[in-house]
Design a protein around this nucleic acid. Structure first.
Length: 466
RNA sequence: UCCUCAGUAGCUCAGUGGUAGAGCGGUCGACUGUUAAUCGAUUGGUCGCAGGUUCGAAUCCUGCCUGGGGAGCCA
């Protein structure tokens, strides 16, 4: 039975199964209801939120032993045929003819047939994928990832694999994790007593990447349109529901493109992913709408059907200065907008995603293209209701002299950027791109409150279990 | 890193100075179609850790640990 080629995914049975079809399903018991002469069991194999209801008549061979063994959490294979269900709750169910129990669950199986707190589930990250919520999250997460690849494949973007280990701290996007093979108890030192990295694995300090953007820029100057999609790392001591030490990032980079094109891509991109998930995971989205966030589906439809609001940073500041709302942090031109400001714009003024552009030069990175006014750069942030900044992007500075000047002004060592400057010396092009935090997208999609519950194995300060 | 709230049975929680509780779960039993089945019985505790106050501490005080929420930083 274990190698039966006729094994059907439960999702397929529920959606497409017809009465009298003979099938084998394999999965884990979610719940069992013993009656006098037969037993109901719900089997789930992860293919869908709902399991299939299996009716096991007492006449099935080995009934007593099998039913005793198939408690909540047990793994089973069941042969039988599909039948129309005489009761409410499901279109189709399964009449069992043979049962194999691979392993029953010990009495202390921690997942009960009731709600658990997400805090508790995080302590059993090896078992929580079997819950309704985490199951739905992981299916939606997977659909988002597939949507991303399909979106870029349709537009002939090249998926580039940016390195995870890097020797450059170019972007300065945050604290970096060091990568070393030194024995921490005896690190070789130089004459000044500092670590002698010439004796380390790479012969120099190395780190886990914080962003693949600069590598993407390299690749974009050969392939025109590219994107990265992979893990990135920040050693920041951030303890919030929106930060992880290890998270996935999507970073498209387009040659021969300006900020306008960048914004258009970002908007199309979000609309595409939301449409894709609504189409491919309707049951899971309905579940989130009912149990996690009653706005989930309305929000998805809002994203899909409405133009994003676009306005400049300068106009946003004027709007914030002239509104009735009192803010904890006062607003004036030149400040970096606080969470409360961004949320006010996205949630209360426009009630949909907002793209802010043309930020003051001082509060943005050196590589963003300087505008003619000299005071702003061609940057854009997409602010989402409930989440805040979900996408950050810019047109890049393609003029060699301006870029050199801005590196110096930022107090950065120009020699470290020799290859980045080379891209401007050899066939420079206007180009633009953005970065999207993948887990924040999944949070936004599902309405999940804590980012630790939208990644299978969250990495946060003081926590790397599992 | 800062502010704030919390930690009591496997889980979710009640208990604010005087014999440690409930629901769910687990176990056993009942029940002719259940849907987180239902009903009955039963099982289950280092009250986060360490110290202190008190005749007496889950409860009050101090320190520490762990977790949540918020802020900063950011994606």
């Amino acid at each position: 039975m274990t190698s039966s080629p006729a094994t059907r995914r439960i999702l397929d049975c529920l959606r497409n199964g017809q009465p009298d079809e003979t099938v084998t399903v394999k999965g884990w018991v979610r719940t069992k209801r013993e009656q006098k002469k037969f037993t109901f069991a719900e089997i789930n194999d992860g293919s869908s939120l709902k399991g299939i209801q299996v009716v096991i008549d007492a006449s099935v061979p080995g009934y007593a032993e099998a039913v005793a063994a198939m408690n909540t959490g047990a793994s089973v294979a069941i042969d039988g045929k599909l039948v129309e269900s005489p009761a409410k709750g499901q279109r189709i169910e399964m009449q069992a003819s043979a049962i194999e129990v691979f392993g029953s669950a010990a009495e202390d199986y921690p997942l009960q047939k009731k709600r658990h707190s997400f805090e508790f589930l995080r302590t059993i990250a090896h078992l929580r994928p079997r819950t309704n919520t985490l199951g739905a999250v992981m299916r939606v997460r997977n659909a988002c990832a597939q949507a991303i690849h399909e979106f870029f494949r349709e537009r002939e973007f090249l998926w580039v694999h940016s390195p995870i280990i890097t020797a450059s701290d170019c972007e300065g996007a945050g604290e970096m994790f060091g990568v070393s093979t030194f024995d921490p108890t005896k690190i070789p030192t130089d004459k000044e007593g500092k670590p002698d990295y010439s004796k380390d694995f790479f012969g120099r300090p190395a780190y886990l990447t914080v962003s693949g953007q600069m590598e993407a820029e390299i690749m974009a100057t050969a392939f025109s349109n590219v994107y990265t999609f992979g893990p990135t790392f920040r050693a920041e001591n951030s303890n919030t529901s929106r930060h992880l030490a290890e998270f996935w990032m999507v970073e498209p980079e387009m040659s021969f493109c300006d900020l306008e094109g960048d914004m258009n891509l970002a908007e199309e991109f979000l609309k595409y992913i939301f449409s894709y998930v609504m189409k491919h995971c309707p049951e899971d989205m309905e579940f989130f709408n009912q149990r996690i966030d009653k706005e989930a589906i309305a929000r998805a439809e809002n994203i899909i059907n409405n133009e994003f609001e676009r306005l400049t940073y300068t106009k946003a500041v004027e709007l914030l200065e002239n509104c009735d709302r009192k803010f904890d942090y006062p607003v004036e031109w030149g400040i970096d907008l606080q969470s409360e400001h961004e949320r006010y714009l996205a949630e209360e003024v426009f009630k949909k995603p907002v793209i802010l552009t043309d930020y003051p030069t001082e509060i943005k990175a050196f590589y963003m293209r300087l505008s003619d006014d000299g005071k702003t750069v061609r940057a854009m942030d997409v602010l989402a209701p409930g989440i805040g900044e979900i996408i950050g992007g810019s047109q890049r500075e393609e003029r060699l002299d301006v870029l050199e000047r801005r590196i110096v002004e930022a107090g950065l060592p120009k020699e470290d950027y020799w290859w980045y400057l080379d891209l401007r010396r050899y066939g420079t092009v206007p180009h633009a791109g953005f970065g999207l935090g993948f887990e924040r997208l999944v949070q936004f999609m599902t309405g999940m409150g804590n980012i630790r519950d939208v990644i299978p194995f969250p990495r946060t300060p003081m926590n790397a279990d599992f």
